[in-house]
Structures are given as structure tokens and as C-alpha cells.
């Protein structure tokens, strides 16, 4: 976004603009900065001087939080749920989006509208019914409960985003392939998939962030500590160890850093994906 950076000297107005922007952004980032450096303090220090920098940087807080919080298992569970959920949602949605935009088949309009419902429905609206259904299926307390539900809940949005992208693509290559005698599945696999890859990566990142952070289903469908995901684990951990601020800050820091790094690496994709999601 800053590729065509303006090199003229800044006017006072622009300095004011930059200054105001910096101040607001700094104030907003402060709680997170406070969290990170407080994680190095002892509990007593946090109580006595909430603002002060740590007298001694205690890296052992992080080791302790990692072990006591079982953060390794939480990370692993979250990675499994996010990975499989995203893969399922993006792959199925790309097939459906292809069919909705490129193929004509009975019930297409009705099905497309059915997917619309999923765009607006708030998850709490079916959380309880979903809970009873998953219990009946014996999936409660398994990671599948989260993989399937998160996959299903992101599919409507993913289908629509990819649909929009499909519509922006030219059909020539597909038509050429059709003339050469390829069937629908070959076309989808060999021609369409490579073309929509950039869009798939974008929606995959979007879904990954959403599933990684999902809390409600994670709280309801998993009661076994060993199978929790990070958001639910953090709530649980901070409830149980609420006497130990430094431990909680350390755990929060450990769990926040990876997603932040991921964000700064994939920043363009994330922002582009969101823009596409709404603005088109």
C-alpha cells in the first residue's frame, strides 16, 4: 500500500494528521504492550506498581505458564481444528461456488438462497440445538465437534466470497478445455482451481483467523481440559489462576504472539480478504 510513497516534504497539516494518528494508535496499543511487559514481572510487582517496568525480567513466568496452562496441547488442538476446519470449508466452498456461478442445474437458485441464511445467522441461535445434536452423535468432547461445526459455519461466507471471485474470472480457458473434451471435474481440478488459488488463500486466512479465535462452540462442546482450544483454554486458565496475574499475562502473551506474527506476515491477504468480503 505504501509502494507509491509520496516524497514531497510534509505540510503542517500532514504532520498534524500523522501526529494525531500516532497518538491514537499508541494509546490503543498500550494495553497490549502493558500485557507483554507485565508478563515479565512478579505478582507482587504488578500489585504494587501496575505501570512500572519489571525490576528483573522473569522469563521463567513463560515456562511456568506454558507448563501449567498446558499451552502446548491447546496450541496443538487449535491447529488441528483450524487446519481441518479451514481445509474442509475452503475446498467444499470452492466446489459449490464453481457450481453456483458456472453450472446450471435444477434447484440452483433455491440452494444459493439457502446459503444466504448462513451469512446472517448468529451462532448463539443454534448453539444449544447443535450441542444436543452433537451429544446424540457422540461427538461432544471430540475435536470433530469443533472441526465440523466451524467448517459448516464458515462455508456460507466462503462460498459467497469465492462466488464473487469466480464471476470476475474470464471463462475462455474453461470453454477451451470443454471443447477439448475435458469433463467438469477435470476442468475444475486442472483449470479452475489454479485460477482461484489466490482467492482461496485469502479466504483460507480469513477463516483461519475466525476459527482460531472461536470461543462459544469451544466452550460448549468441549469439557475435557486436554481437548480445549486456545480461546476456551485461556478463559479457563485465567479463571483458575486469577490469583496469579503474571502467569495469566505470560499465557496471554504466548497465545497472542503467534497470531500477531501470522497477521503481520499475511497482512496484505488479510486486509484484501476483508475488503473483498464487504466492498467487492
Amino acid at each position: 500500500m505504501s509502494s507509491n510513497t509520496d516524497a514531497r516534504p510534509r505540510t503542517p497539516g500532514e504532520w498534524l494528521q500523522f501526529g494525531a494518528g500516532s497518538v491514537i494508535v499508541t494509546v490503543m496499543c498500550f494495553p497490549a504492550i502493558w500485557m507483554v511487559y507485565s508478563a515479565f514481572k512478579s505478582n507482587r510487582e504488578i500489585f504494587r506498581s501496575p505501570f512500572g517496568l519489571p525490576a528483573e525480567w522473569r522469563f521463567e513466568n513463560f515456562t511456568k505458564a506454558w507448563i501449567e496452562g498446558g499451552l502446548g496441547a491447546l496450541f496443538l488442538n487449535t491447529i488441528i481444528v483450524t487446519g481441518l476446519g479451514v481445509a474442509m470449508s475452503v475446498f467444499f466452498a470452492s466446489m459449490a461456488a464453481y457450481a453456483f456461478t458456472r453450472l446450471d442445474f435444477p434447484g440452483r437458485r433455491a440452494l444459493a438462497r439457502l446459503f444466504l441464511v448462513g451469512l446472517l445467522l448468529p451462532p448463539p441461535a443454534v448453539a444449544i440445538a447443535l450441542f444436543t445434536q452433537l451429544s446424540a452423535l457422540g461427538l461432544i468432547n471430540t475435536l470433530w465437534a469443533l472441526i465440523l461445526t466451524n467448517g459448516a459455519w464458515t462455508i456460507a461466507l466462503t462460498t459467497y466470497l469465492l462466488g464473487g471471485y469466480f464471476r470476475s474470472l474470464k471463462r475462455e480457458m474453461e470453454e477451451a478445455a470443454l471443447l477439448e473434451g475435458a469433463n467438469r471435474f477435470q476442468i475444475f481440478w486442472h483449470v479452475v482451481m489454479p485460477l482461484v488459488k489466490p482467492a482461496m488463500i485469502t479466504v483460507a486466512i480469513l477463516n483461519a483467523i475466525n476459527i482460531w479465535n472461536e470461543l462459544l462452540f469451544a466452550l460448549l462442546f468441549i469439557s475435557d481440559d486436554a481437548k480445549r482450544t486456545l480461546p476456551a483454554g485461556i478463559v479457563r486458565f485465567s479463571g483458575y489462576h486469577s490469583t496469579d496475574y503474571s502467569l495469566i499475562f505470560a499465557a496471554l502473551t504466548i497465545t497472542t504472539i503467534p497470531i500477531m506474527i501470522f497477521y503481520f506476515i499475511c497482512q496484505r491477504h488479510v486486509m484484501r480478504g476483508l475488503t473483498a468480503a464487504v466492498a467487492e
Binding site: 451429544s135 461432544i140 468432547n141 469439557s223 475435557d224 481440559d225
Partner: peptide, 9 residues
């Protein structure tokens, strides 16, 4: 069973 698991399911 673990505590919570026991009382839940």
C-alpha cells in the same frame, strides 16, 4: 472420569 467430564456427560 475427569471432574467436568463426569458431571457433564
Amino acid at each position: 472420569y475427569d471432574d467436568d467430564l463426569y458431571s457433564d456427560t
